[in-house]
Design a protein around this nucleic acid. Structure first.
Lengths: 323, 323
DNA sequence: TTGTACGCGTTATCAA
DNA sequence: TTGATAACGCGTACAA
């Protein structure tokens, strides 16, 4: 017992005893057992993270932000990866609960995941904070960017520079982020009193392939309907679309302007650099972690929405830049 | 006890009892406690990973490989991040030991870290496998690419296409990877009976900034000594060098050819796409994890070196491609 | 200041 | 087939 007190720098230990204990501990190669400690203290100083994807540049960056914040607070991180699969996400949450993490940070799978799962976690009393891909209305905190507002602003940027026929590659319906960006696109049109034309909204998914195919569909439209500008749901979709545009012998942005979303690392390096919206991934991860820690330590209530500001990155692909 | 047997599908439980237990468990929202289980079983089904960097595209990819392998084996992952700092690496290892992980995968900090630390871990009995950035000769398994051979092959590729004055941006001395690549460069020269010229080897570090500065140094050489081709220690250094080359009004690869190392995602997207060596990060992570698991489960001995083959990616920057 | 007894949730062992 | 007991390593409460 005295040993425990000594090693944890608790009061009521004779200074000399403390030194002796320290010396012996070192000599014996003693390493405290977090497991046993967690068992009795009922906390693990560990937070669990669930991401749907690791390769994508956004999440590693966000994880770095998370890591930074929790490391500073003396916590550790268990990383799980749902691979965009509901089954793996369920598994990950179960694991984290089993491991008795003190809190969970999660970015849901694209399709939104099973809400009941998240509710269950919260009911069990584990603080849960969503980041980037959130589920609202179940009492968990959400840290995200304002997809709708950002998409609206970017669409307005195009409209403001004179583009009238603006198309949208709209991701997948039912994916909250895609929906929000689509809404932003619609709002911008409405505000500019432009009609929403069904044929100018094509589902692209979130990857290059889908963007490519969706753009081809748009390019098959008769010349007078064909869009003059395109708002892609994200950068990869935009890359695919650009490929289609170029294969059709059209020039960027002279014939068709395009904007993306997320500032993929490749965006700046394209032959015609892509105008897009930068998501401050690091900051987002950090803020989410800070919010979670605050809840864990009782300094903050669960719930509420924290919005991280995005930044427009105007490059050449929108054709709006003063040369 | 019977409950424990029932839930873990152990024999010697009446079928009906098993069903009853299962029903109650569900009803009560029972979730097994990994912590308590780990305490008694002395294993956590968890492996610890230490990476020096998360943002870089290589490690997220490697982590994905690791994740895939250990998930399939029913293990979990604690991710720690040394941020290239010796202190944080020590901290990470200590944490992982404290958490009683069943094994550790580590890619050391650039400068190689404190060998005593790693030895200590091994002595305590925790299986340790190095990946990518390894420490040899302490009995731990190493999974890596053959830096020397790959660098040699790439240098020979240049020499084989007629380049005589080939310079090297050599990272930092004492960083094992840099040393190995430098050795490969030297071997290629020797094999071609070209002299190793001191002024053509400049230290660049591993980042763009250093590559830029190192290249400027090379460009200040008198015309007859100035290199006609450059082997950069990695892609970021090459990017910096390219910037310097272009700022000096020289053209790539007409005036100076350059090759990188690692196939950064940007390599293919440069105005003059960069010739480089692809490191199969995913595979490397996966193999390292598999080796570690094999050791943990007693199916393999610690020690030995597993080499993952690299792949040359010949693009425009070396000027060797048949147009 | 130091030490004793107990409990955290689970499993191994052995007896019923 | 089932259950009682001890043990894993640590911290809390309280006694010495």
């Amino acid at each position: 017992m005295t040993v425990s007190r000594a090693l944890n720098n608790r009061p009521n230990v004779k200074e000399e005893t403390r030194r002796q204990v320290a010396r012996m501990a070192r000599k014996m190669g003693y390493i405290p057992d977090h497991i046993a400690r967690s068992l009795v203290l009922r906390r693990t100083l560990t937070i669990g993270v669930v991401v749907p994807e690791i390769t994508h540049s956004f999440f590693p960056e966000a994880i770095r932000g998370i890591e930074e914040a929790i490391y500073a607070a003396g916590y550790h991180l268990i990383l799980t990866h749902s691979a965009e699969k509901a089954e793996r996400e369920r598994d990950a949450l179960q694991t984290l609960e089993s491991k008795r993490v003190d809190g969970i940070l999660i970015s849901t799978i694209e399709t939104g995941g099973e809400v009941a799962l998240y509710e269950h976690v919260i009911q069990r009393g584990t603080p849960l904070v969503f980041f980037d891909r959130c589920v609202y209305g179940i009492g968990a905190s959400c840290v995200c960017i304002d997809d709708e507002e950002s998409a609206q602003a970017l669409t307005e940027h195009l409209i403001g520079h004179g583009y009238k026929r603006v198309a949208h590659l709209c991701g997948s319906p039912q994916v909250p982020i895609a929906e929000a960006r689509f809404n932003g696109y619609k709002k911008a049109l409405r505000k500019a009193k432009l009609a929403l034309r069904k044929e100018l909204v094509v589902e692209s998914g979130f990857h290059e392939r889908g963007g490519y195919e969706a753009m081809q569909k748009l390019l098959r439209l008769p010349a007078q309907t064909r869009p003059r500008a395109v708002v892609a749901v994200n950068d990869p979709a935009a890359f695919g679309a650009i490929k289609a545009i170029q294969e059709n012998g059209l020039q960027l942005p002279r014939d068709i302007a395009i904007v993306g979303f997320s500032d993929d690392i490749r965006a700046a390096l394209m032959p015609t650099p892509l105008t897009t919206v930068r998501q401050p991934a690091y900051l987002l991860g950090k803020r989410a972690a800070e919010k979670l820690l605050a809840i864990i330590e009782g300094n903050s209530e669960a719930g509420g929405k924290i919005i991280i500001a995005t930044e427009q990155v105007i490059r050449q692909s929108c054709g709006c830049k003063v040369a």
